[in-house]
Design a protein around this nucleic acid. Structure first.
Lengths: 113, 113
DNA sequence: CGACAATATAGATGTTTACTTATATAAATC
DNA sequence: GATTTATATAAGTAAACATCTATATTGTCG
């Protein structure tokens, strides 16, 4: 599974985005995160694993706690993909525009009604 | 459901990203798209509906065909979200860095080994 | 070492999602 | 108007996912 898959799957869940939003206000432990979300601790642990696999967060050990924090580099694969996709979209759009502009006389497919 | 949800859910599926990649080489009909993907036509139709709901593609009528093409504006919600997330991540990171730099003497938690 | 605290893992369950086949709709062509 | 072509919708199924409860792990403190 590609890094892009992991990133997009991680972000596709609203709970995980909420966790990221919470983490953007600073480090938090699993219990910290579980509280505002009306979810059990195992559920949060699982979400954190998904976010970690995606490279969007990282965790350190602090005694029995495992505080998480955001990991900015984790966005790189997504950024790269979106940049490429945007380029492709705009290039394609420009090409279509050019094509449509050229076709003042309709082709053999009875196209413009 | 937010526009962001729709975008991320749409992109989270590899088949749908492959469809976008194919569309970046130009317009295509449902049958055009079904061929290289070893999927049935209804499956593709469903994926196209998801992509359209996300605003990532648009379709026109051409007789009995429904050619699809990419829709660049569709990326705006995602771009906005990612920009905000990146800012939050970097701000948080900078804040942590500052914090760690200030703590040359370790705190009461036996932190740096 | 024993009890407690924070997190992880396992197993089970309900819901969603991707997919299939079969059928319906819509437009073109004869 | 009947047949064919392109797509959409419906109904069913299997796999994936988020979630829970229960339990295991790991580290701290008395």
């Amino acid at each position: 599974m590609s890094s892009l898959d992991h990133s997009l799957l991680a972000l596709a869940d609203p709970t995980r985005r909420a966790i990221l939003a919470r983490l953007s206000r600073g480090e938090a432990t699993v219990m910290d995160l579980a509280a505002p979300f009306a979810l059990t601790q195992p559920a949060i642990s699982h979400h954190l694993k998904v976010l970690e696999r995606a490279g969007l967060i990282e965790r350190r050990r602090e005694g029995t706690r495992r505080p998480c924090r955001l990991r900015p580099e984790g966005l790189a694969p997504l950024d790269a993909y979106l940049a490429g996709l945007r380029d492709a979209m705009e290039a394609n759009y420009a090409r279509l525009d050019a094509l449509l502009a050229k076709n003042d006389d309709p082709p053999h497919t009875g196209d413009p009604a």
